[in-house]
Nucleic acid binder design. Structure first.
Lengths: 189, 189, 189, 189
DNA sequence: AATGAATGAGAATTCATTCAT
DNA sequence: AATGAATGAATTCTCATTCAT
C-alpha cells in the first residue's frame, strides 16, 4: 500500500505558509512555502489542490487557533467585566506572541481568495464570546446596535492595541490595560 | 513642440490604479491599469518610472485627498467635541463615498512597497487634527498615553464604522453617530 | 524520485545558444534559444539562472572545447616549428570546422557580460602552448617583448587565415600554410 | 520655408552614436544616442530613417575617416618600406587616439546590420594602399597570394598592436615598432 | 524641421501546476 | 506518496518608431 498522507507534513506546510505569507504577502511563491516546510514543490499540491485551497485552509487554521486561545479557560462564572477582560487579554497576548500568525491572518482576512464559505465556517465557535457581548450589549450604551457592532469595536481596539504592544514591548502591560479601559468605556452603560 | 505630458492621463492612471488595486490588490498587472486608464501599456511608464513609483504616487494622492476631505472646512473655532465630530464625520463620509479609494489606500498603507520617505511626506498636513487630539488627550482619560494612541483609537473605530455603513447603507446615520459616541466615551474624561 | 536534470538538455541549450548567438549576436532572445533547443522557455532557466549565466557557461564551454582541439595530440617531443605548426593547424581547423562556434566565441570574448572570474577560469589549460611560445620568444626576434605579444600575433594571424579559408574553401591548404609561414617569419630569429 | 536639415545635427548624431555604440554595443537605445547628441528622440529619425540606416551611415563615416587618417600625407615618393611604415603608423595612431571610434567600427564591422552594399562602398579610396601592397606582394614572400591576404595581415597585426598600445601606453613606441617589424618580416621577400 | 509623448511588440524572468520517475 | 524538472502563460519594463503639436 502506498504511504498515507502525513499530518506532520500538512502542518509543516501550514506553518511554513504562515511564516512566508507574513513576510511576503499572499503573492509568496508556493515553491518558497514548500522549501520552508522541507518538502518538495510538488508535494504541496498533494496536500492542497491549489494555492487557494492552501490559503483557505490556513485561514481556517489560524482563525481556529486564535479562537482556542481566546476561549480556552474562559471564566464562565465571572462577572461581565472579568469575562471581557479575559477575552481582551487572551486576544492581545495571542497576537503579541505570534506576530507572523497575526500578520498572515490579517492578510488573509481582507483577501478575496478566501471564499464566503470559508468565512462562514469561521464564525462558529465563538459562542461564549457572543453571549458575553450580548449581555454587555443588552445593558450598555450600545443596546440599540447589533451584536456585531460591539464585537467589531472590541476587535478594532484590540488590534490597534497589539500594534502598540508590539512596537513598545516594555509598555505591554500599560497599553493592554489602557486599551481595555477605552473599550470598556466605549461600550459602557 | 511635442505633446505635453497630460495631467489628465496621469490622473486617469491614478484613478485606474485605484480601481484595479482595490479589486485585485497590489499584484494587479500594470497592463490592466493601463487598459483601464485608456492608454497603451508603455504609456504608464512614461508617467511613472516603475510600478513601485506609481504605487507610491498613488499613496500620496489618496492620503492627500483624504486629508483634504478631513481638514477642509475644519471648524477651528468650535468646541473640542464639535471639531472631533467634524473630523469623524468627514472621514467616514469620505470612506463610504469612495470604497475603492479606501480599499486601495488600506492595501498601500500596509505594503512594504511604500518607501519610508513617502510615508514621511504623508504625515504633514494633519496639524489641526493633531492639535485637536492633543487637547482631548490633555484632559481626557488617556492623558497618560501618547497622542498616537488616541489617534489610533479614532482611526480604528472610524474604519470599523465605515464597514458597517457600507454594509448597511440605510443605517448610515445611526452607525456614524453610534461609532462617534463610542469613540467619545472611549477617550472621555 | 523526480526527473534528473539532463545533461542532454543542458548540452542542447548550449548548442542552441551557439547557433543563435552566432547568428544574431548576444542580443538573441532566450526564447529563441529555448525553442532551438527543443525545450520550453522556462526550462532554460532551470539550467541557467539567467541569460548572463548561460552566456558565461557558453564561453567556458567553447573556450574549453577549442583548447581541447588545440592541445589534443600535442607533439611534445617535436621541434619548436613542428609544435607551432600543430597548434596553428589545429586552431585553424577548429575554426573552419565550426564557424558558429567561432563566431559565438568571438562575440563572447569581447562582451562585458563575461565576468572576470569566468575569464580567469579560461586561462588554465594552455600550458604547453605557453611553453612553446616561451621557447620561440626566447630565441626569436621578439625576445624583448612579452609572451602575450607573440601569442597575440599567432591569434590574429590565425583568425585572419580562417576568414580566408572559410571564404575560399578550396584553397584551405594553401592559405593555412601561407598564414603559418607568415607567422613563422614574423616571430623568427 | 521650413528649416533645412542641419549638417551639424547630423554630425552630432554620428558622434553621439560613436560614443554610445562604443560603450554599449549595437544594442544601445536610439534614445540614448539622441540625448547624447543633444536632440530629441524623434529628430534622430528625420536624419536617419531607421536605426539600421544610422548604423550604416556611421560605418561609412568611420571607415572614411580612418581612410583619411591613413592616406593623408601619404609619402608617394618614398620607398616601399617608408610607405608601409607611414600607413602602419597612421593606422595605429588613429586607433590609439580614438578608442571609441575604433571600438564602434569594430562592432559595426562584424555586424550583419551593415549591408553588403555599404561594405562595398567602403572599399573604394584605398588606392595608394592597394598599390603599396601590390608592390610589396609582387616581390615578397606572399607573391602567390592575393592582395587582400597581405592587407589582412597588416590589418590584423595593426589591430592587435593597438590593443597593446592602449593597454600599455608608455610602451606605445616600442609596440608600434615591434608590430611593424613583425609585419615586415611576415611579408618580406 | 523639431519635439517628446504615445504606442505595442518583444525581452527576460517568475510561478502555479503537471507529470515522469 | 514524494520528488523536482518541465511547462507556458503572465508579468514588468524597454525601445524603435510614429505622430500630434
Amino acid at each position: 500500500m502506498a504511504r498515507r498522507k502525513s499530518e506532520d507534513k500538512r502542518n509543516a506546510l501550514l506553518a511554513a505558509a504562515t511564516e512566508v505569507v507574513a513576510e511576503q504577502g499572499l503573492g509568496a511563491p508556493t515553491a518558497r512555502i514548500a522549501r520552508q516546510a522541507g518538502v518538495a514543490e510538488g508535494t504541496l499540491f498533494t496536500y492542497f489542490g491549489s494555492k487557494d485551497e492552501l490559503l483557505n485552509a490556513l485561514y481556517l487554521e489560524l482563525k481556529g487557533e486564535m479562537r482556542d486561545a481566546l476561549m480556552g479557560a474562559f471564566p464562565r462564572g465571572g462577572s461581565v467585566r472579568e469575562r471581557a477582560w479575559h477575552v481582551w487579554n487572551a486576544y492581545v497576548e495571542w497576537g503579541v506572541a505570534h506576530p507572523p500568525r497575526r500578520r498572515a491572518l490579517a492578510q488573509l482576512a481582507v483577501s478575496d481568495r478566501i471564499t464566503p464559505e470559508t468565512r462562514a465556517r469561521t464564525e462558529a465557535g465563538f459562542g461564549d464570546l457572543s453571549a458575553l457581548i450580548a449581555e454587555r450589549v443588552a445593558e450598555g450604551a450600545l443596546r440599540d446596535q447589533p451584536f456585531a457592532f460591539t464585537a467589531a469595536i472590541l476587535g478594532a481596539l484590540a488590534d490597534m492595541t497589539m500594534d502598540f504592544v508590539i512596537r513598545y514591548p516594555d509598555q505591554a502591560e500599560t497599553y493592554t490595560r489602557a486599551g481595555f479601559e477605552a473599550f470598556w468605556r466605549a461600550v459602557a452603560a
